[in-house]
């Protein structure tokens, strides 16, 4: 047995492993006092309490912990487990196909009135009609322009604000309380005010979009910027970077993928708000088309517009995701 001449300056504590093997095996879990004694009498007692009065190994007053029966083998997928690529694709296809099939069977069975739930074919032909007449494109263009303009303004305000909040303590202290409060005021509740302030024109709709997006995007940008590891900032200083160079060459590239992610989440919100704005007061746009169709009970048209809104949203999402993957290759 080694460990007899430990090169320590302090006295070596009598470790439990120094006991002869017989004593270790004799310490049975049931008997409270092990017959061989809990410590080898030839060994000097270690620190007080080590060779104690109890029964278990090492002089503890309890036996081994209770055991649980082993878990039954389960066929359910394990937590955190990934699926194989073929399974993943099957599931992805199902995710779209199953709701479609439910829709088709519901409308074909006649269980639901056509006025409430038009068949996919009816929706498709309504969409084709709207496209032929040109109103689909002009409405889509009106909405896309509003979203584009409003979202750009919101990003132009929120990114510098969020950047400042995330990188400078004073900006955080100054802006966080007010933005945290404004964020919880529903943007749609501002519609009457905006109409009073800005009238029924374009500006009130764009203002609604900005209000709906800017606060969330500011806070999310600030969160991303704040996550930069402090040692990156420190090492930048020791490499000679001035403050503005650290902001431009270190914080910005570090935070860019996360900032695009935040924009992606908030782009979806922007689409919600443009439709809300157009539902209330507009003479063009996809939301306006929905209110028009509602007036004449043209649910097939409403469905067609909804599908178009969904597809445009998906396109924006995919484009921003591609942009994120491009600038954030290093983060994966």
């Amino acid at each position: 047995m080694s460990g007899t001449d430990l090169p320590l300056t302090a006295p070596a504590p009598a470790v439990a492993d120094d006991r002869p093997a017989s004593a270790a095996s004799a310490a049975s879990p049931v008997s409270p006092v092990s017959p061989a004694g809990s410590a080898d009498p030839t060994q000097p007692a270690g620190p007080a309490g080590r060779a104690g009065v109890g029964g278990g190994p090492g002089g503890r007053a309890w036996g081994p912990p209770p055991r649980r029966r082993p878990a039954r083998p389960s066929r359910l997928p394990k937590l955190g487990e990934d699926v194989s690529p073929p399974t993943r694709w099957v599931l992805r296809v199902l995710s779209v196909v199953v709701p479609l099939v439910v829709w088709v069977t519901l409308s074909a069975s006649g269980a639901v009135d056509d006025t409430f739930l038009p068949s996919p074919a009816a929706v498709f032909s309504a969409g084709v009609d709207m496209a032929r007449s040109g109103e689909l494109f002009s409405d889509t263009w009106s909405s896309v322009r509003r979203v584009g303009l409003g979202f750009l303004i919101a990003v132009a305000i929120s990114v510098p604000l969020g950047f400042a909040m995330g990188s400078m303590g004073w900006a955080q202290a100054l802006l966080e309380p007010v933005i945290g409060l404004l964020r919880y005021m529903p943007a749609s509740a501002f519609i009457p005010l905006l109409i009073i302030w800005l009238g029924l024109g374009e500006s009130s709709k764009i203002a609604l979009l900005v209000i709906g997006v800017v606060f969330f995007n500011t806070l999310m940008t600030a969160d991303v910027v704040r996550r930069i590891p402090p040692d990156l900032l420190e090492v930048s200083g020791t490499l000679g970077a001035r403050q503005h160079e650290i902001a431009r060459k270190v914080i910005l590239p570090y935070a860019l993928p996360g900032m695009i992610d935040a924009a992606r989440v908030n782009a979806a919100a922007a689409w919600n708000f443009v439709v809300v704005a157009e539902l209330v007061a507009a003479t063009s746009g996809l939301g306006y088309r929905i209110t028009r169709a509602q007036r004449f009970l043209q649910t097939d048209k409403i469905f067609a517009v909804l599908v178009v809104i969904g597809l445009i949203g998906l396109t924006i999402d995919v484009l921003l995701r591609l942009a994120r993957d491009r600038v954030g290759r290093w983060a994966r």
Binding site: L239, G240, K249, Y254, W330
Partner: peptide, 28 residues
């Protein structure tokens, strides 16, 4: 204050993860 005449290397390395090895060396 910090400056390039006193280079610092810390335990984590603190490399810029979006920069290649060469671009990291080029930073200063």
């Amino acid at each position: 204050g910090p400056g390039p005449e006193r280079g610092l290397v810390c335990q984590s390395g603190a490399l810029f993860p979006w920069r290649t090895a060469a671009a990291n060396i080029a930073f200063g």
